Simulated assay, not measured.
Amino acid sequence: MDRMDKDLAFMLKYENIAWYENGKVRILDRRVYPREIKFVECRTYKDVKQAIADMVTQSAGPYTAAGMGMALAAYECKHMKLEEQINYLINASEIISHARPTTINRMKLITNSCAEVGIKALREGNSPIEAIFQRTIDSLERRYRRMSEVAVNLVNLFPKEGKVMTQCFGETIVGCMGREIKKQNKKIEFYCPETRPYLQGARLTASVLKNQGFKVTVITDNMPAWTIKEKGIDVFTSAADTICMDGNIVNKVGTMQIAICAKYFGIPYFVTGIPDEEKYLENIIIEERDPREVTSCNGIENTLKGVEGYYPAFDITPPELVSAVVTDQGIYSPYNLKEYFETEIEQYY
């Protein structure tokens, strides 16, 4: 049976995101890709937690790493007594899920589910490692399948021939969007802001789209307005770290300013993803990362000693700047997202 990562780019293949095998988790280091193809090897679940916190993997990558980290936790405690193993998995779930503050709600869905299947396997005399590993693969298949459905709805909104601007790295939707464009035989080229300081747009989004055969142009983060005007951009689209039920969109810092530009120039901003049930603006904590990541780039200091930096990792785009939220169930206004949950929804993560 074909896996859902068929025909996607190198870094979207399951084994190249995060992979548990023989008491270790191997994670593609997206901080250096594509300059270097390097994997970080984690020997404990706490190593996995730290790799997620250190941005070794980004976008949806941490969700896969978290599941594989839970399989590693099961390996670490395999010689303990039953109740000790159960407590070990519960504790690992809590620690891994808190690797990054903005995505705790989503990470808990993953790690708690992994703990549950692992504990069930233990009580039934089966391998919790295998159960958690398989649960993680099943989650990948489910997410890729549902994002493929999102991609159909998104690409239906694209012109037959046009230019699309992206933001940061939307992981699965980027590859699925590219695959769907080919299926619909549309001629689309992409403009990708670089996304300082980790350059996910330049290194990750542009790499995936180039791998899948598209014309891609990278711009710096202060060029979107002029590029929209001069290059005739037709659509701005991004994924989201959180789609709040009140229509606020939490995504990589810089998303809001491009949404403002899109509104000014009269082009649509389409957000892709699954709404986060019961998540509202007042629940959001914006992660502030090490300011040294702003005063330097690629390990090279760019400022005089004593100059300060400020690095909010995300910003919040209000619903009035969002043209539509594109989901696997259809296309919604940011003001009616509750309707998404009026039918029974399969767990996404």
Results as ranks from 00 to 15, higher is better:
residue 99 A to V: 01
residue 99 A to M: 00
residue 99 A to D: 12
residue 100 R to A: 06
residue 101 P to L: 03
residue 101 P to A: 11
residue 102 T to W: 04
residue 102 T to K: 06
residue 102 T to N: 09
residue 102 T to R: 07
residue 103 T to K: 08
residue 103 T to S: 13
residue 104 I to D: 11
residue 104 I to P: 00
residue 104 I to V: 15
residue 104 I to G: 01
residue 105 N to V: 14
residue 105 N to T: 13
residue 106 R to F: 04
residue 106 R to P: 00
residue 107 M to L: 15
residue 109 L to D: 07
residue 109 L to K: 15
residue 109 L to C: 10
residue 111 T to H: 00
residue 113 S to Q: 10
residue 113 S to M: 04
residue 113 S to N: 13
residue 114 C to S: 13
residue 114 C to L: 04
residue 114 C to V: 03
residue 114 C to H: 03
residue 115 A to E: 00
residue 115 A to D: 00
residue 115 A to S: 04
residue 116 E to R: 12
residue 116 E to D: 11
residue 116 E to P: 05
residue 117 V to S: 00
residue 118 G to T: 02
residue 119 I to R: 02
residue 119 I to Y: 00
residue 119 I to D: 04
residue 120 K to R: 15
residue 120 K to F: 10
residue 120 K to E: 14
residue 121 A to S: 02
residue 122 L to P: 02
residue 122 L to W: 01
residue 122 L to G: 05
residue 123 R to I: 07
residue 124 E to F: 07
residue 125 G to M: 06
residue 125 G to A: 08
residue 126 N to R: 15
residue 126 N to T: 06
residue 126 N to W: 08
residue 127 S to W: 01
residue 127 S to M: 05
residue 127 S to E: 03
residue 127 S to I: 06
residue 128 P to N: 08
residue 128 P to Q: 10
residue 128 P to K: 11
residue 129 I to R: 09
residue 129 I to Q: 09
residue 129 I to K: 08
residue 130 E to T: 14
residue 130 E to M: 11
residue 130 E to I: 14
residue 131 A to S: 15
residue 132 I to H: 04
residue 132 I to E: 03
residue 133 F to P: 00
residue 133 F to R: 09
residue 133 F to K: 12
residue 134 Q to M: 10
residue 134 Q to D: 08
residue 134 Q to E: 09
residue 135 R to K: 15
residue 135 R to Q: 14
residue 135 R to E: 14
residue 135 R to A: 14
residue 135 R to S: 13
residue 136 T to A: 03
residue 137 I to T: 12
residue 137 I to S: 07
residue 137 I to A: 10
residue 138 D to P: 05
residue 138 D to M: 01
residue 139 S to A: 14
residue 139 S to M: 15
residue 140 L to M: 12
residue 140 L to F: 15
residue 141 E to K: 03
residue 142 R to F: 05
residue 142 R to M: 10
residue 143 R to H: 04
residue 143 R to Q: 15
residue 144 Y to A: 14
residue 144 Y to T: 12
residue 145 R to D: 15
residue 145 R to P: 05
residue 145 R to K: 15
residue 146 R to W: 10
residue 146 R to I: 13
residue 146 R to Y: 14
residue 146 R to L: 15
residue 146 R to C: 05
residue 147 M to A: 05
residue 148 S to A: 15
residue 149 E to R: 08
residue 149 E to A: 06
residue 151 A to W: 01
residue 151 A to Y: 02
residue 151 A to I: 03
residue 152 V to S: 08
residue 153 N to G: 04
residue 153 N to M: 06
residue 153 N to W: 03
residue 154 L to P: 01
residue 155 V to H: 07
residue 155 V to G: 04
residue 156 N to I: 06
residue 156 N to K: 14
residue 156 N to Y: 10
residue 156 N to P: 00
residue 157 L to N: 04
residue 158 F to E: 09
residue 158 F to Q: 03
residue 159 P to S: 05
residue 159 P to R: 02
residue 159 P to H: 01
